[in-house]
Design a protein around this nucleic acid. Structure first.
Lengths: 338, 338
DNA sequence: CTTGGCACTCAGTGTCAGGGAGTGCCAGTG
DNA sequence: CACTGGCACTCCCTGACACTGAGTGCCAAG
């Protein structure tokens, strides 16, 4: 049993299919690859591979196409990780280092990934969890409404509107603002949250309700880490995936609007969170994304704080995509660390 | 010359075509509409309408389809503006009033519009121009870098990173922060910008360079009004526009990624900026959007500060779309005003 | 101005045959 | 035992062809 050659055949099928987008047959295969055996032999190997569930034929008398399992084996054992060339690395770091603020970093990252991979890309905003509180601002909006603005150590900003129980007095607000900042500024978010819990009781009972409202809003923003935002780019590439993909385009667009789904995909990272993770076709268990694969990685300095990734047809160039995702994630991390 | 009936024929063609998505012929037309004349007569009317460039036939022996000019005339003179029903109004205001902050208002608005119209929707973030400065925060990021955060009266936040000429001293920064806020807080953006221009000269020469850098960054954020952000929703609806639209989907997705294009569309509002504006097919002069129409409106309180809109195939239900856009814009305005 | 009649055009559909690519199986060979 | 060449078979794809149906333009008559 030439186990070796059978895997080489699988690799060749994957590579050819990714390249031509058409089912690959035994004859074409021996012509393009120097196996040193005849097409009949390859046919036999292919039959075995099909028995193992690694390839299928769309219909009798057509070539073979890799299954999800086939791609999985390819990614795990056959793919040679392509190294990025020097100019590519240069281009990545150059483009990213031009960013002026956090929004811009995220924005540039997602666009860069999209243009490098020509696929759909997703970048998650860095999460607050490991971050510190830089400043808290309270802005009276007139009437009973107060805008609470939290500036985190990363530069990220959380906003929230609060209804006070009664008319808001500017002096009271100043007092509360000072107290809140004393308790939270410079501290880890979780610690700040704990300290703020105790704050209402230390204040003039008359303003307790207002303080409670403010604290609750802040606390929610801190602990819940709600509004985990993601940014998308390259949706236009969907149209370029080819006519065989056209039927899936609707469901995929649906999924892309469901940011919750995307966050889940980015959240389920591998054990080593900075490693590149690949989920193929039905592996990620979302109906609308059955014929797409997702390549993700964590990024963000010493503590990994967020994920980014690429989404494309299962028939994608895994080695290149994985290399690109890894390179971009590493550069963004370095940038945020510095 | 029964000018009257000819227009009625055009209206019927537009309505039927929007409904059936198929070229409409004279026979089908007289069956569905009580013109009181025969199909031959309608045929004659249609010939005239075609001469006037209001309708065309995709190929000989097919029904007629409205041209951009036909839709234009329909929108300008034939469409009866549909009123929103009571439950609809209730649903709109109910959904919008649940918003907790500005981000949430924009987010809910764009989703609401998308689900009501089942088309692609765009909402522009409220612009700063008429707004005031609420607070300016300076955050040392270590080394020579300083994060400048501008909180505007609307609750909008602008961020920017500045390289100081030398190591940043926390005390100096506090001083600058105080001065900047004195000069700008509570003032109109333009006025604040003017005042800040003069600030560097009033300070200790030793810190002038730092101050200049900060002021320049602030000023840019104020005057340039860069990063006019837009939010999208309903891109998935593109796939539902039907197979005849499938060929345009790529270019349209391209255009949607070019936020500059969208901003231009939202910016070119009508004379009365709160009125609903419609641009049909090639009217808006963007190649990729040749077969789409855009329905927009300004929104945002006493001073109109931003735009929102709907993008769909030229073959869209204009009366309903226009009514929806108008209603949503008016509710958001009211919400932001209150 | 309207109408019914008529000839014409053309997209869409269904059928059919031929070509091509690919497969599975089998008997033979080193 | 692995590999090979040969062969019959299956099924997609394409082009040709005819047919149908919807729609048109034109015209002579009401």
């Amino acid at each position: 049993m030439s186990d070796e050659r059978r895997l080489a055949v699988l690799r060749a099928i994957v590579e050819d299919y990714v390249h031509t987008r058409e089912p690959v047959g035994s004859k074409a295969l021996v012509e393009r690859h120097p196996f040193g055996v005849s097409s009949a032999t390859i046919r036999h190997d292919m039959a075995v591979l099909e028995d193992e569930g690694l390839i299928v034929q769309p219909h009798t008398s057509a070539g073979r196409v890799p299954t999800d399992a086939g791609y999985r084996l390819f990614v795990d054992r056959l793919a040679e990780v392509r190294a990025m060339s020097q100019p590519e690395r240069k281009a990545i770091s150059g483009f990213l280092s031009g960013a002026v603020d956090l929004d811009d970093v995220v924005d540039r990252t997602v666009r860069l990934l999209a243009s490098l991979t020509r696929q759909v890309t997703v970048v998650q905003y860095p999460s607050l969890s490991r971050s510190t509180v830089r400043h808290v601002e309270l802005v009276p909006l007139g009437g009973r409404r107060v805008l609470v603005v939290l500036i985190a150590g990363t530069g990220r900003v959380e906003q929230r509107i609060v209804e006070a129980p009664g008319e808001v007095d500017e002096n009271v607000l100043s007092d509360v603002r000072a107290r809140v900042n004393v308790e939270s500024a410079g501290r880890q978010l979780t610690e700040a949250s704990a300290r703020l819990q105790a704050l209402p009781d230390q204040l003039d009972p008359a303003h307790r309700d207002l303080v409670r409202a403010v604290v609750r809003a802040l606390d929610e923003a801190l602990v819940e880490e709600r509004e985990e935002r993601v940014v998308l780019a390259g949706a236009a590439n969907l149209a370029r995936f080819g006519p065989d993909f056209a039927s899936s385009i609707g469901p995929v667009l649906d999924a892309l609007e469901e940011h919750v789904v995307l966050l889940r995909l980015l959240g389920e990272l591998s054990v080593d969170r900075t490693a590149v993770a690949v989920r193929i076709g039905s592996e990620h268990g979302h109906e609308g994304l059955r014929s797409t694969s997702v390549v993700t990685s964590g990024y963000g300095g010493a503590d990994v704080v967020a994920g980014l990734g690429v989404l494309g047809p299962t028939r994608m160039d895994y080695p290149t995509t994985m290399a690109t995702v890894r390179a971009v994630a590493s550069y963004v991390s370095r940038l945020l660390d510095g």
